[in-house]
Simulated scan of single mutants.
Amino acid sequence: MSDVLAPGSVIGIIGGGQLGRMTALAAAPLGYRCHIYTPEENSPASQVAEKTTVASYEDETALAEFAAAVDVITYEFENIPVDTVQRLSKLAPVRPRPSVLAVSQHRVAEKDFARDSGAGTAPYRHVTGLDQLCDAVSEIGRPAVLKTCRFGYDGKGQVKITAETDLAAAWASLKTDDAVLEGFVSFDKEVSVIVARGADGTALAFPVAENHHVDHILSTSTVPASIPEATEKAARATAVALAERLELVGLLAVEMFVTTEGEVLVNEVAPRPHNSGHWTQDGCATCQFEQLVRAVTGLPLGPVDVLFPTVMQNLIGNEADQWLDIAAEPHAKLHLYGKAEARPGRKMGHVNRIRVS
């Protein structure tokens, strides 16, 4: 096939974090080389890649030289200026394409997209000022959560709205004029699905992961999820439908709520590998990082069968200091990210504990 990149081709990865690191590690056995573009010196991804360009996302000269040196471009996080990705797309193939990134960067845009695609969401209203916030709270009710539309993650950029909350103070605390108010839903579980879609339109959804958060940060992902088969099918079908409507080439992570009535509601999407998909490295026939490489290079997608029931645990901050004990566990697979400094709330690595029957 003419659109398949041969081994020896170079994958350009925008972003130097752990997701880029693990993508580069997955690319190497398939014969691909990786070139990282990041503003960060000594990034986790650069430690394992063939080449790194350290420059700002606004450096047009560096971006042009990067695009000329690679055969395809992908990204490992979504907080990249869309203008940067659009500029690169004129110089080299970018997968997923810039329009997919634009949807994922804005919480109202992604919720509108999910609704327009036929997926359920929690009730929400776009809020651009205090008066709108007051109106939205009157419509949606309390409790609710007010979030910035851009750049929030792991609990950052949001405030809970309760019966006691002063709305003026809550609005001022976000320091933005672009926010979304989301109504609380009575949910039984938080789950996620990673779906891959190749250039030929083939889409495959990984099994559903059941997620547990602590202080707004993912703590564990468990596969198989303890949900009915019908819910599993609905969640995977929802993820595939979103990927197809986006005409995605690459990966899409879809975070969802399973309500107490068994309904699946889309919460957020991310067009990249996802923390909740790390279990695939040791518990699945194809890991999410290899699947991304396959999708963007035009290779056939790999099978997504569960090989071992797995619990992925994030190692946050000083939890990574337990590396020696974890390495001694017979069925624990340790993955460290090469970050020099442990800080509270910082993801330093993860461990996959597989169940061998």
Rank of each mutant, 00 (worst) to 15 (best):
M312P: 06
V356K: 13
Q313H: 14
H278M: 00
G198D: 05
Y75S: 07
R294S: 07
G183W: 00
V72C: 09
V4F: 01
T23R: 00
C134Q: 14
G302T: 07
A67S: 08
I194Q: 06
A102L: 12
C134G: 09
P344M: 06
R355S: 12
V351Q: 09
K90H: 12
F289S: 04
S2G: 12
A320M: 06
V306S: 00
E110H: 07
H274W: 03
R353I: 12
G302E: 08
I73K: 00
S117V: 06
P271H: 04
V293P: 07
L265T: 00
Q322M: 13
Q291I: 08
S192N: 10
D116E: 15
T84A: 09
S138A: 15
T286Y: 10
G120K: 11
A199R: 11
A102S: 14
P273A: 03
G155P: 10
K347G: 10
A114F: 08
G345L: 12
R125N: 02
D166N: 14
L251Q: 09
A45V: 13
E139F: 02
T128L: 01
L324F: 13
L204N: 06
A169F: 01
V240M: 05
F66K: 09
Y153T: 10
F66Y: 15
T280A: 06
Q47K: 14
E210R: 02
P309V: 12
V72T: 12
G317P: 14
A342K: 15
T280I: 01
G12P: 07
L130I: 12
H216K: 01
T148Y: 01
H335M: 11
Q322E: 13
A64L: 11
R33L: 14
R142D: 01
D321Y: 03
P330M: 09
A163F: 03
P93R: 05
T84K: 06
N211W: 03
P303C: 04
A320I: 11
E232T: 09
G262Y: 02
C34L: 10
T297F: 03
A170F: 04
E41I: 07
A69F: 10
D200H: 06
L301E: 12
L336Y: 07
V4Y: 03
D305M: 00
T222S: 08
L91F: 04
V293F: 09
N275P: 10
R236K: 14
R272E: 04
A163R: 13
A285W: 01
L167Q: 04
V191W: 02
T286E: 05
Y337W: 10
P228E: 15
W323R: 15
P344A: 01
R272V: 06
V304Y: 02
I80Y: 02
T61W: 08
R125W: 02
V293N: 08
A270Q: 04
G250A: 02
R87H: 10
E60P: 04
